[in-house]
Amino acid sequence: MDTERPIQNEDLTGRARIRDAALEVFAERGAKGATVQLIAAAAGVSTGLIRHHFGSKEGLRRACDEHAIGVLLDQARRAMEEDTAASGFVDSMYRASSAGLRYLARALVEGSPAATDLFDAGAVLAERFLTEHDPVRYPPGAATTRDTATAMGAVQLSTLVLHTHLDRRMGVDTLDVAHTPRVVAAMAGVHTVMAEFLAGERGRPIADSLTPRPPSAPPEEER
């Protein structure tokens, strides 16, 4: 009688259960505070089973990176390769699972390599958006374009990193997908009111002083 398939299915279920428990423990305790013992207790398994599936805590963390961040990173890379907009990537990020978002928030703070790659990929997509939207102000490859795109990425991800403060002030779990529209609407409100202020009488002098000048044309002899 073939008994291999049920064992494989059980292994897959156990592996996923450990990974999901690890996402929550890593998010709460951080990479240093999340011990194998805590993860095993949260998953209801032995530490030996964790070693069987992942080899070590670092191997388990890599699996969490791949599950919570890898899909988003692959999507961002495809967007860059296919020259598509960043909107789908950003939307997918904010609609990920609550456990995945909490893990990503902690990984961004702690400097996970996968989270660093994700931030950089998002910044590249932001550079493309800026250049397509206003190529005179944000020409490809310019330092101003890179700086602005980097700041855009930081602003977008700040709601994840600072989610406990948003939760306290807004009175909801802002990493729950049910409240994503509320967070997005608040962010849109910030951009709208700031754009209106900078376009108005009081804000225009500030905007004028901060607006980068377009690159000057090269001298005749260099053309």
Rank of each mutant, 00 (worst) to 15 (best):
E221Q: 12
E196P: 05
S98T: 12
V109A: 10
P205Y: 11
G48F: 02
T164E: 07
P140W: 11
H133R: 14
V155M: 13
A76C: 08
F89L: 00
P135R: 00
S158N: 11
P215H: 06
A86S: 14
M170A: 13
T47N: 11
H191N: 10
G200I: 04
A154H: 14
S97K: 01
A195D: 08
D208V: 05
H67C: 09
D173A: 13
D167P: 02
D120G: 07
G171K: 09
T84S: 07
S112K: 03
L118W: 01
V25K: 05
R17M: 13
G111C: 03
A107N: 04
A99K: 03
A85P: 09
A41H: 13
L125V: 09
H165P: 01
A42S: 01
A185F: 08
V190P: 06
A142D: 12
A178F: 03
T150P: 03
G153A: 13
A188L: 07
A34W: 02
V193N: 13
Q156K: 08
V161D: 05
M80F: 07
V136N: 10
P6W: 00
Q8I: 08
P212N: 09
T192N: 06
P139V: 03
P113N: 08
R51E: 15
D2N: 13
V136Y: 08
A41S: 10
T159F: 13
M194I: 15
P214S: 11
P219H: 04
P218V: 10
A99V: 01
G70C: 08
P6R: 05
A22W: 06
G203P: 00
F129K: 15
P205N: 07
M1I: 10
V36K: 11
P212L: 06
A149D: 09
R202H: 09
T174Q: 02
R102T: 00
A85D: 14
H52P: 09
N9D: 11
V184M: 12
T150N: 05
A114T: 02
D20S: 03
A105Q: 00
T180W: 02
M93I: 13
I69Q: 03
R137I: 09
Q75K: 12
P135Y: 01
Y103N: 06
V109H: 06
A76T: 04
D120L: 13
A217G: 12
T148M: 11
L101A: 00
A126K: 01
A186F: 04
T180P: 03
D134P: 02
M170I: 12
R169Y: 07
T145S: 08
L60M: 02
H191C: 06
A115G: 01
R15V: 00
E222Y: 06
E24D: 13
D83I: 09
S56D: 07
R106A: 03
E28G: 05
R146W: 00
G14A: 04
G59L: 01
R213Q: 14
H191A: 14
R169D: 15
F119H: 11
R77H: 06
T164A: 04
L210D: 10
E24V: 14
L198G: 00
E222S: 12
A207L: 09
C64L: 04
R17P: 06
A217S: 10
H52F: 15
E196A: 12
A151C: 07
A21L: 04
L73G: 02
S216T: 15
F26E: 02
